[in-house]
Structure formats: C-alpha cells, structure tokens
Design a protein around this nucleic acid. Structure first.
Lengths: 123, 123
DNA sequence: CTAAATGCAAACTATTTGCAACGAT
DNA sequence: ATCGTTGCAAATAGTTTGCATTTAG
C-alpha cells in the first residue's frame, strides 16, 4: 500500500460519481503534483482485480470507475452521457438460476433519456 | 445502400458469432479485396444507429457486434473471453417499471467461467 | 448530375508498457 | 538489501477523420 494507492482510494471513496481514470488522475495531481498517469491506471487495474472498484465500459468515451458496494446497474443517458445507479434487486439470484452456475459479476447498462434531455427533445 | 454495406450486412447475418469490426473487415476483404477498414467502421456505426446491429463493449479487447433480434444479455467467460447469448425474459418490462420511463436499449454482460474453463481450473 | 459513400492515410484517444530510479518493508 | 512500485516517455490498440475520388440514386 503506497501513498499513491491510498490517495486513489481516498478519491474514489470521497465521491459518489463515476469518475474516469483521467478525472481521478487530475484530482490526484492536486494533492500529489507528480503522480503519474500510468500509476493511476496501474492501481485502478489492481483495485479492479481485488474488487475494490469496478470498471465500467462506457458506450462512448473512456471507462469509468465505481466504488463497488452492492451489485447494481447503471442508467446511461444517450444524450448527455450522465450515469446514475439503479439497484437491481435479485438479479444475480435470477441469473444464477437461469445460467445454472456461479455469476462472478455483471454489468448492466440501461440506455435511456434522462428527464432533462427528454424535456429538451420535447420542445 | 452500397455494395460495401450490403456485404457487411451479409457477413453479420451469416454467423451467430459476435464478430469484432476487424474480423468483419477481414471477412469482407475475402469478397471485396480493397474495401477499407474505415468503411467497415463507418457502416457498423450507422447500422448501430439504425438498430440493425448492436455494439457490445467488451471487458477486454475490441468491441463486438451482434445482429440484433430480441433483446438479450451475454455471458462472458473471464478466462477464455468467449461470449454467448442469454435470453433475459421480461427484463425490459421490469426495468421500465423500476425506472418509470422508457428504456431505449440495454447491455447486460454477465461474467462467469464457462464449463471448459471451470473444468481446467478444477484440475 | 449531385449528394453521399469510399479508399487511403494520417490523426487521435485511451490505455499499457519498458526501464531506470525510488521507497516500503 | 530487496523486491515491488513509481515517474516518465514511448509504444500500442482500437477507432475516427480529412480529403480527393468514386458511386448510387
């Protein structure tokens, strides 16, 4: 556990947002001006393997990271690209029953138009 | 509708596999030796917008394309990266009820170990 | 005829990696 | 002391784009 890694964890824990590696890097720079971008990517990958964070592949743009707690899905606005959590109760159980084997994890991304963007389109 | 686009559609329709843009490009080259990689990418993007195909963001490696039919999810093997369909009956309805607004589409990727890889790990 | 699509190559974005120097144990 | 981790810069992978040329309608 290096200072760099501790800082990255702290940043992840300090926000409910789904930050990109670069956003995390930018925040980290504020507190540790010569932390390297590579270090951030490396640690995020390790933390993903350790299941400390989950990497979210996005339909557009860079991956984002989620401080993992309970399994959940995401609502993705096709217009403004905002991302919000959705609890999907019982989905894992359902899936395991359907698949007949252990589910290691899942990623559910639901595309929609968020209220603000729907409003705009209506006008 | 150009010859190029028709060929890409034909390739997509001729296989149940989830090909990458580059795999589609390689197959296309066999029948049309100077079709350009850019053309394949451009058409796949258009076809995605027209909902003729669905682009699948993968946890590792390039995106893959799915000839869309009924909405469904995918089983992804964390070990050998194989990808197979899972019908997820009623998920859209469930989601719309939970979200309270129209779902445009969704991507569900379930991580697991496929039978072959599970076997190997056990040994 | 003309507007849109192509082939080509170069550009670009996101991410990974090699390596010498550094730091935690 | 030693082994993993860092910072840096260069490399890579996947995809997109600009532009002159071709093609479909």
């Amino acid at each position: 556990m290096t200072r760099q890694r501790a800082l990255i964890l702290e940043i992840m824990r300090s926000t409910p947002l789904h930050l990109t590696a670069d956003e995390i890097f930018a925040q980290a720079r504020l507190k540790m001006p010569n932390i390297a971008r590579g270090t951030v990517y490396r640690n995020l990958r390790l933390m993903e393997q350790d299941r400390e964070v989950a990497r979210l592949e996005m339909p557009a743009g860079p991956d984002r990271y989620d401080r993992t707690a309970a399994p959940h899905g995401h609502l993705y606005c096709d217009c403004c690209h905002s991302l919000t959590d959705i609890p999907v109760v019982g989905l894992v159980r359902e899936l395991e029953a359907a698949i007949g084997t252990e589910v290691r994890s899942y990623q559910l991304t639901v595309h929609y138009l968020c209220p603000a963007c729907r409003q705009q389109q209506a006008q």
